[in-house]
Simulated scan of single mutants.
Amino acid sequence: MGCVCGRQSVVIQGQKFYLMRQIGEGSFSYVFEARNTADSHQYAVKKMSCHTDEEEKRARDEIENYQRFSHSNLVSLLYHEQVKYSPSAHVTSIFWLVFHYFKNGSLQNVFDRQTKFTTRVLLELFLSICEGVRQIHEKQMAHRDLKPSNVMLLNNSQGVILDFGSMTPATISITNRSDAQKWQDWAEENCCVQYRAPELFHIETNAVITSKTDIFSLGGILYACCFGKGPFDDVYSRGDSVALAIASGRIELPVQSSTYPSIIIDTMLSMLHTEPEQRPTVDEVIDVLSSAARLTMDIA
């Protein structure tokens, strides 16, 4: 049973974990670095406190999303358990989820340290992220919140995508104004503003939202891999409208853009196109950048 044993430990599916320190926080969740008493290895333990039936459904959907996949570039759910509480309690349920702990941190941590990638490492790392996205899209799903802090590093050239709480079916049909407002509000709550596709800022009636939202976010991640920050981070920091900046379609390239081959910059710009149908698929991105990677390796 997933009961809390003392203030700093929890038992999940018969495994006892000591919660060492908090390393993340979401809208109704906390993530802890933890140690398993059986093997002394480090893990990441996510605690989701649900106050409503809707929050319980979101937690169950997230667990189901993890269980859809088994791939080296997508995070694996190792253990999970739900603890139900009485109607008089301030929460209806607590869900505990256990994942591998990534000691190398996230892609955002790399940018914060102002680490620069060689072309070869950049391509290997970004292609590994794309392989994870390809798995998601092949299952007819979309992540919807791809951003550097949701990519953990196995090493300096392999990324692992996590946080499937915003994952939805790849295609969402908007049939009326109520649907449009509902999904617009959902995007506001669940999709990082600096990496959010333009079609998620103002959703029209009769619109169709596709997995191309992930391609736009991937384009932002590729930009950040090249230049150490996202294409709209400065806009956000100034307090200006990110929505307007994204909708404008203008992508400012730093002077150091000449550091990387033009094929990388051109691919990135195609992924950041304001029109979803003009963006490449993840398969097309992988094909183009894999060719660039082979050429880079031959040169090296």
Rank of each mutant, 00 (worst) to 15 (best):
Q15Y: 10
K16C: 01
Q22N: 07
S27D: 11
Y30L: 07
M48K: 06
H51T: 09
E55W: 14
E56Q: 07
R58Q: 06
E62A: 06
Y66L: 09
R68T: 05
S76E: 15
S76F: 15
S76C: 04
S76L: 14
E81T: 11
E81Y: 01
V91G: 02
I94L: 01
I94T: 15
F95A: 08
L97K: 13
V98M: 05
Y101G: 00
Y101I: 00
F102G: 02
L107M: 09
F111A: 10
Q114S: 11
T115W: 09
T115H: 06
L127V: 08
L127K: 13
I129Q: 00
E131H: 10
G132E: 01
E138S: 00
E138F: 02
H143S: 06
H143W: 05
S149K: 15
L154T: 12
G159F: 14
V160A: 05
I161R: 07
S166K: 10
S173M: 11
S173F: 13
W186V: 06
E188D: 12
C191T: 13
C192F: 04
V193L: 13
R196D: 03
T205L: 01
A207V: 04
I215D: 13
I215C: 07
F216G: 11
F227Y: 13
G228D: 03
K229Q: 04
K229L: 12
V235L: 10
Y236G: 05
S241R: 08
E252Q: 01
M268T: 12
L269P: 00
T274Y: 01
R279F: 00
P280W: 14
V285N: 10
S290V: 11
S291L: 13
A300R: 12
